[in-house]
């Protein structure tokens, strides 16, 4: 196994994606949870509806994890057989992986926080007009599009960088 600076940079990228996605989701899910608890204290029967809203900003953490995991698999950390042959990953190759992880890291962090805010507003809809809870979900889900796009570009970059390196 050739642990080079390049490998370190690549792993660092994946780890940052996982951390920032997770932090964003924790903030988002946490804020929605507070609002949801307020509604449930008034009307416990709305638990199911607000729970869905609370879970929505949680996906970014999952996406960050996914990117980190795929990166570890792709650069061979999981199998113990690092890509890049005898000399290991170069710094520039490592930086490529690092850059590939950044969309998910930053997009995940910010979108989860704002999705949390949209979901909090959605909890307000559930409190006043429970029959319109579907619309509340859609408003929050709109934000998630950008997390999905970030996830996609990160994944596709990781896959294509690997295929460039391994030839």
């Amino acid at each position: 196994m050739n642990l080079t600076m390049g490998a370190l940079l690549a792993i660092l990228g994946g780890v940052i994606a996982a951390i920032m996605g997770g932090v964003g989701s924790a903030i988002g899910v946490g804020t929605v949870g507070q609002a949801a608890a307020g509604v449930v204290s008034e009307d416990p029967s709305k638990f199911g509806k607000v729970l869905i809203l609370q879970i929505l900003p949680g996906t970014q953490g999952l996406y960050g994890f996914l990117v980190a995991f795929l990166l570890l698999v792709q650069i061979g950390v999981m199998s113990g057989d690092l890509v890049g042959g005898e000399s290991g990953l170069t710094v520039s190759q490592g930086l490529m992986y690092f850059a590939a992880c950044m969309p998910m890291a930053i997009g995940g962090l910010v979108s989860a926080m704002y999705q949390g805010k949209a979901a909090v507003a959605g909890v307000g809809i559930v409190a006043k007009k429970p029959e319109e809870s579907g619309k509340a979900i859609i408003f929050a889900a709109m934000v998630e599009t950008y997390a999905v796009l970030a996830l996609l570009i990160s994944i596709l970059s990781i896959f294509s960088i690997t295929s460039i390196i391994t030839g």
């Binding site: 996906t59 979900i137 859609i138 889900a141 998630e144 599009t145």
Partner: peptide, 8 residues
């Protein structure tokens, strides 16, 4: 997630 995105 699937339910929400299919709806979207």
């Amino acid at each position: 997630g699937t339910y929400v995105h299919t709806n979207r």
